[in-house]
Each structure stands twice: as C-alpha cells, then as structure tokens.
Simulated assay, not measured.
Amino acid sequence: MGDNIRLLIRRLLRGPKLATGKSVTIEEADSKGHPIVQIPEFTLEEAIDKLFDNRKKVALENIGRLSSCPTWDVQILYLYDEIRQCIIFGIYGTAIILCAIMIEFTLKYAIFSKRKKENVDFDSEAWKEFGGKMTLRLAIEAAKKEKLITDEMAASLHSFATDIRNNYSHFNIQAITKEYYFKDLPVLNAETGQNEVRDIPVDFTPGFQILAKSLLDGQTVWKLFEFADKVVRHLLPHIKEAA
C-alpha cells in the first residue's frame, strides 16, 4: 500500500514517537491485550485542526528566540524569512538545509561584491557565471584570500561544510546520527507483557535513525542558525560596500 495524505497527517500527529517490531510481534502483543498506543481516528478536518494547535504551541515557544534579519537586501532577507518560518513551525531539517544555503550564498555574494565593487549595477550574467563555478570550499578559501574572513572563521566554515552541509545535503543519516543512542528505552516483551529497559543504538533500525535525526535536528538548528547569522553579519559590510 502506498502513502497518502491521511497517513502523512497521522504521522505528523504522532510526532517523534515510534513503535518498532515485526508485524506478527505487534499483532501478538495486541491479541494478548498488551497496551499498544494508537492514534485515534479523526476526520481530516479534525486532524488538521489538532495539527495546527500543536504547531501553534511550537511557534509560540520558538518565535521569541529568533534573530532579526540584519539587512534589507532582498535575497538575504528572503533566506532569513524562509529559515525563520521553518523554525517557527518546527520544520527543523529544512531550516538546517536553508541555513547551509544562506551561508554559501552570502559567502559567494561577498566575494563577488568585492571583486566587482567598481560596478554600480548588479551584473546578473557575471554573477551566474561566478556562482556556478565556485564550490563552497573554494569560496571559503577565496574569502580568506580576499581577507573577508579570518583563519578561525575559515576553519569553522570548513568544519560546517564537512559535518553539516554535506551530510544534510546528501541525507547521510548514518553520519548525522552515528554517535546517538536511546538510553533507558522501554521495550515490551510480547510473550510476557513485561516492559524491559534497554540502551539501543540508533542503527538498530532505520526507523530509529529517522527518529534520532528528528530529535537532533531540533538541537542542531539553533546552533546552525546562530552560526549562519554570525557569518552573514560578518560579511554584510563587504556586501554593502559594493552595493
């Protein structure tokens, strides 16, 4: 059976909770009366209302922690808005990828601005050629050479490229969750009905890796947004000089 919107809504309502096991094991536990938590049935409208209520709680918790955008530059402002919208509603994985995009874009934008500072008008064709040829790592080294960033910031950017940008862009979930495990996880013994407590590494099942990533995203996004904001604010004066 394929996926559909109703199943998506059920997963969103479920949140970061997961029961894993063979279908026969779950059926056996259910047949013996062991507690199996299930999502109640809702109409689609009821489910969406409940989902919006959940998202509203997240939004109210997150909105006060967000930095303002330090510029009216339309491209950077757009990226800030997209990132902040995702964070407000708890869509952290997407926000992380957008933070990576903003860092790379702003870095290249600052280099381009400095090299083209004699031009008053923005040259879209020159930017297209410039941006298309320069990778992130080349941009980091170019920015260091142009004295736009310090050696310390360059090292931080290289670390970001390896640990965050590459892993998230390629959905390398093994690398993202490699040091994570679930401690004191309750495990139901289907035969006895007894709950056991175990420490389980996330590579026990792909479902655990997805769950771990969802939890880690909520921690990573704040650190990365803070870092992205720091990079933008550092580079912005160089962009303004060439504006």
Rank of each mutant, 00 (worst) to 15 (best):
M1Y: 12
G2P: 15
D3Y: 15
D3V: 15
N4T: 06
R6K: 15
L7M: 14
L8E: 14
L8Q: 14
I9H: 07
I9T: 13
I9G: 02
R10M: 11
R10A: 14
R11K: 15
L12D: 01
L12K: 15
L12C: 08
L13N: 13
P16T: 06
A19P: 01
T20S: 13
T20M: 14
K22F: 13
S23L: 13
T25I: 11
T25Y: 08
I26D: 10
I26P: 10
E27C: 02
E27A: 13
E28W: 09
E28I: 04
E28G: 01
A29M: 09
A29P: 12
D30C: 05
D30Y: 11
S31E: 09
K32I: 02
K32E: 08
G33L: 05
H34I: 06
P35H: 01
P35N: 05
P35V: 00
P35T: 01
I36A: 03
I36L: 13
Q38S: 10
I39N: 10
I39C: 03
F42N: 07
L44W: 02
E45Y: 07
E46S: 06
E46C: 05
E46D: 12
E46Q: 14
I48V: 15
K50M: 08
F52A: 10
F52N: 04
D53V: 10
D53L: 12
N54D: 11
A59S: 08
L60R: 11
L60T: 08
E61M: 07
E61G: 00
N62F: 06
I63V: 13
I63D: 07
I63H: 04
G64M: 05
R65S: 11
L66N: 03
S67Y: 09
S68F: 01
S68K: 12
C69D: 04
T71G: 01
T71A: 01
W72D: 12
D73V: 05
V74T: 09
Y78G: 08
Y80D: 05
E82M: 09
Q85E: 12
C86G: 06
I87M: 15
I87N: 00
F89G: 02
F89P: 05
I91H: 11
I91C: 01
Y92F: 14
Y92G: 01
Y92L: 04
G93C: 05
G93F: 01
I96D: 05
I96W: 03
C99H: 03
I101M: 10
M102T: 02
I103R: 02
E104S: 03
E104R: 06
E104L: 04
E104Q: 02
E104T: 08
E104M: 06
F105R: 10
T106F: 01
Y109S: 04
Y109N: 11
A110Y: 01
I111E: 00
I111N: 00
F112I: 06
K114H: 06
K114G: 07
R115V: 05
K116C: 04
K116P: 02
N119I: 03
